[in-house]
């Protein structure tokens, strides 16, 4: 007969925060259930997310690299790229300044109406992009409230770059503030108080203490804000007027080409935007993996 075995020595050590994985039979499913669920989830993701992405690049390159290159170096396409970059370069910094200011006020101070303000900041997320465009047409369009005054002073906002910037600012409004508010709330005021007690003034306190604490969260917000700013379609479509070479951003250019049945060119420009999305996702994953601890809790992986 075998010697008596002390089973307690054979059990794997139980760690207090053991991840909820297959090991613990009490809190997981049978292997075949796990396998089936995983397969179902991945098939769903494959069909709904990956396939469209692959499709963009396939369609773009269907007629060869030559056609692809030609579509991208077309002067209208280049103008669209330039305008898209310009709009993002204005809209993102504006929302950056707003996001920091709003987060400072909301996270660091107590005041009445704070919840209302937080809700209002999120408002643009629940407004259709088309409505976002519409509101500026109603204000600044030829028949809008300020229309006659703008025409009299020879100023154009709708069907011009300022309108596109405004619409983009609206739809990307909450991104940076939303990242920073929970992050700064989690961090509390102790660091700032310490800096002040050591004699730092308000700016030094922000520059040397707050900013280093929030820099990764800030970058994360900028990344998302920028992706949306460059890719926005609905809101911009309403205010742009689709003037080639002048008020056409990249997404609008995709639409024009597509409606002209120039599919190869449409997908070529679309592939640039898809590339931007991929770069955004990669950077976002890197941020989450490397600096997860310095993002707000909801972003940690």
């Amino acid at each position: 007969m075998n010697q008596a075995t002390d089973h307690s020595l054979l059990d794997p050590p139980q760690l207090p925060f053991e991840p909820l994985l297959q090991r613990n039979a009490v809190v997981t499913e049978q292997p075949w259930v796990r396998w089936l669920l995983t397969a179902a989830a991945l098939v769903f993701l494959g069909f709904f997310l990956l396939l469209p992405l692959v499709g963009v690049f396939t369609e773009a390159l269907r007629h060869g690299l030559g056609v692809y290159w030609q579509a991208l170096t077309d002067s209208d396409a280049l103008d669209a790229v330039r305008l898209t970059l310009l709009v993002a370069a204005i809209a993102v910094p504006l929302n950056l300044v707003f996001g920091v200011a709003a987060a400072w006020a909301i996270a660091k101070f107590e005041f009445r109406g704070k919840t209302l303000l937080t809700t209002l900041i999120d408002l643009p997320f629940s407004v259709s992009p088309v409505v976002a465009g519409l509101i500026y047409v109603l204000l600044f369009g030829a028949q809008g409230w300020f229309g006659p005054w703008l025409i009299a002073h020879d100023l154009q906002i709708i069907f011009a770059v300022p309108g596109i910037v405004l619409a983009t600012v609206f739809v990307t409004f909450p991104f940076i503030a939303r990242e920073l508010i929970p992050l700064m709330q989690e961090q509390g005021n102790d660091d700032e108080m310490a800096a002040l007690s050591l004699g730092a003034n308000g700016w030094q306190c922000f520059r040397y203490v707050t900013l280093p604490n929030i820099k990764w969260g800030l970058l994360y917000g900028v990344l998302l804000c920028n992706a949306r700013a460059m890719g926005e379609f609905g809101a911009v479509s309403v205010v742009s007027g689709h003037i080639r070479g002048e008020t056409n951003t990249m997404p609008l250019h995709v639409e024009i080409l597509y409606n002209e049945y120039n599919f190869a060119a449409a997908f070529a420009v679309a592939s640039l935007l898809a590339g931007l999305a991929l770069v955004t996702l990669v950077l976002k994953s890197i941020l989450e993996a490397r600096h997860g601890g310095e993002l707000s809790t909801s972003r940690r992986h």
């Binding site: 997310l49 469209p52 992405l53 963009v56 935007l273 931007l276 999305a277 955004t280």
Partner: peptide, 16 residues
């Protein structure tokens, strides 16, 4: 890739 719809411009998603 779960975040792809957040990052991919809607027009691109539409034509794809």
């Amino acid at each position: 890739t779960i975040d792809l719809p957040f990052a991919l411009p809607t027009a691109v998603a539409g034509i794809a």
